[in-house]
Each structure stands twice: as C-alpha cells, then as structure tokens.
Design a protein around this nucleic acid. Sequence first.
DNA 1: GGATTTCTGTTGAATTTTCAACAAACGGAG
DNA 2: CTCCGTTTGTTGAAAATTCAACAGAAATCC
Lengths: 219, 219
Amino acid sequence: MKKYLEILKKCPLFRGIAEDNLLRMLTCLGARVTAFDKKYTIFAEGTPARHIGIVLSGSAQMIQVDYYGNRSILAEVVPSEIFGEAFACAESRNLPISVIATEPCEVMLIECSHILHTCQNNCGFHQALIFNLMKDLATKNILFHQRIEITAKRSTREKLLAYLVLQAKNAGCDSFEIPFDRQELADYLEVDRSGLSAEISKMRKEGILDSRKNHFTLL
Amino acid sequence: MKKYLEILKKCPLFRGIAEDNLLRMLTCLGARVTAFDKKYTIFAEGTPARHIGIVLSGSAQMIQVDYYGNRSILAEVVPSEIFGEAFACAESRNLPISVIATEPCEVMLIECSHILHTCQNNCGFHQALIFNLMKDLATKNILFHQRIEITAKRSTREKLLAYLVLQAKNAGCDSFEIPFDRQELADYLEVDRSGLSAEISKMRKEGILDSRKNHFTLL
DNA sequence: GGATTTCTGTTGAATTTTCAACAAACGGAG
DNA sequence: CTCCGTTTGTTGAAAATTCAACAGAAATCC
C-alpha cells in the first residue's frame, strides 16, 4: 500500500488524516487494490453497490447505457478521485450505472459498510471519514448541477461552448486539454458525434476557437 | 416549533433522532421559520450559500436560468424535504441556482455551519446530523442520475416516457399526478413546451397514455 | 514498417425540434 | 356571472439535430 500513499493523501476521503494513521486505517477498512485493463468494467450496472472505488492510476468513466445502446458519460474519474460512493452510501440495491476503465488502471476498493459502521476495534476515525464523505458528496452534487447546466442548453454549439468555458475556468487558462475524444465528448454533451464535429469545424472557421485533437483554445 | 414536529420527524436530516431531543436541538442550531408567498425567491442565485432549508408546508422548486432566460427545473421540493444542503455543505461561495416558492410556503432555515461544527454546548448530536446529511446527499446524487438518464434521451417522446415510467414506478401505480404544469414539465425535461403538448396529444391518440391536466395514466 | 483498426471530419437527406402566433379552455377575482 | 389573465393545444415554417455512409488521418498491433 505504501507506494500509493501520495495519491491517497490527495483523496478527498482521507483529507485531514495523518499519514501515520492512513496505512493502519486502510487495513482496518479492508481496503484492497485491483488492477484493470483498458475497457474493463470495474462496476457493472445492475450489480449490488457495496464498494467505494478510489482511482490510484489510470482513469475511468461513469457511464449509463440505455435500451437502444445510447451511451451517456456521467463523469471522468482520475487518480485520487472516488467513485461509486453515492450508491454505496445510499445503500441502494443495484448500481444504475457502470464504471469502465478508459486506460489500464489500479483501483482501491473499500467496502462502504466498513466506513459507515463503527468496527470492533472501535477506531476513532469513522467520524472523520463520514464527514469527508459528506463533503465529497456535496461537491459531486454541485458537479452534477454544472453538468446539467451544460446539457440543458438546446443546441450543440451552446452545449459545447458552455462546456469549454467551464474547462477553461477550471484550467485557469484559455488553452487546455479535455479528457474526451470526439465520441466521448458527444456522449457527455448528449449530442450527435458528427454534428459535434461539424460544429467544431464551423466554430473554428468563425474564429471562435482552435482545436487540435483534444486540445482546445478559446479565442 | 411544536406544530411542525410531525413534518420535521419525517425530514431525512433528523432521522433516528428522538422527538424529545428535536426541539432542544433546533434551538441549539438556531433554526428559524420563515413564510414565503407564491413565486417568492427563497434563495437567489449568486448569493452566499450558508443555509439549509427544510420545507414545512407548500412547495418550492430549484431552478437554473441561463443567459437567454431559459429556465430549467432541477427539482421539486415538498414538505419534510431539504434544499440547499449541497451548496452549504460544500461551502461553495455563491449559489449557482435559485429556489422559488411554487405555492405559499413555510421554510425552516438552519445555518449549515451550526450543523457541521460542534457548538460550545458540546451537544452530542452533530455526528448524527452529519451522518444523516451524508445519506441525504447520496440520495440526491442518485436522483440527479435519474434526471440525467431522462434528459439524456434525444427526443421529446423518449424523455416524456422515461419520466412518466419513473413516476409510475414511484407511485406504485400506472395512474398518478405529476407536480408540474406543462411549461414546468417542459423545463424539467429540457424541451419545447408546444412540442411537448403536441407529443402528449399524439401519444394519447396512439393509445399509449391518457392525461387530464397533471394527472397521467400509462396504458 | 506495413496492415488493420479506430477516430475524425464531411456531406446530404430525413426527421425533429424550436419558434411564433393564435384560439380555446380554464381558473380566479370581483 | 362575467371579465381577465393564465394555461394548454394546434399549426406551419424555419432551423437544427440525427442518421448513414464514406474517405482520409491517426493510432495500434504484429
């Protein structure tokens, strides 16, 4: 576990927890690390939601796929970030979403009941973890608001612009990388891929933005 | 406060808390009750996010309004439900949304810092409240997933059907009321109102559903 | 390094949505 | 009961999205 310490220290679940205590805590929580190949399904829709995942390396996406196979990407998860916590904490029966690896990745899995319910050893850190979980869930909530604000727009152009402006703001710079290829961006914005490509070309011609692969610049 | 006890007991924030303790707790938290007229803005976008609201009577909506005045309805809030907790808990600077009364309503307002940070009296209930807040935030998260699953559909008909099927499931019956008028439903589904009306008529003619005002029946 | 697969941009046609405008239905106030 | 403002349904035209198909570019695999 030791080699993951730097990543784990940045994880919102462990904020404010001393490094010395972290390793012991992980043992008590029964944390285990699993590696997944690219495209592997880490959590499958319809399966019980018991674990919280922490990305240690690589990256993953939370996705929903409907009847007709339309995919929508709910979020991108990168190292030190958590996923699955909402379902595990709400003790919902089955996952309504899937989490898939977008690159080979290592994930730490923790059974959520080990966090929520005080253990036999009577460790004192459960309260801190629950507080951190609450903060994390509140933050995720706000991220969903942002996503809805973007996808609520009625046209491809407006959605794209709203998304790019937000990314620029997060990056603190008008030139930045996005974590999606074209199809993924379309699945995040809930629009047609070819229409999105066309719109990007059009905006480039109009001098609104510049793009090269997944690097964008707002002009 | 006493007359609100029945509503408050059902509030997820106070789950598991003995009735005897509730009133004392509210005093310690500095809870106050405010009445709002219909259409009144309870929380305004852009203002600091410090309070959690609990609806005691009437109802309210969380809404976002963009540049061009397009409204989207994020959620309907009814008695015993909480609003604003995500922003208050995440200690976000300013509200990205507004909450407006859809009927005359009474709301209990609690400053979130009073919940999150232990008070001088050293009350023992903060941990319980934080745990309840965490559960609530996890549940809200899942509700957002459901909303995204609905609005991610590409056509008005699919959105409407996904919404109605979910409502039927929640009601446990194929015949149910929805909390929206047509314009509000359109703003929730992120579609055009007239197109929505047309689609409903069409589906009625096709024998897929029946509707009378905001009462729907799936056939 | 070459072959193969995946990704991206383009196009035109078909389908849908949006928009604007209006009339009927409804509900509340006086 | 009547008036008046709001809500709902309808319509047609304009605009936009989706869909399918393809070709070139890029990345991956052996």
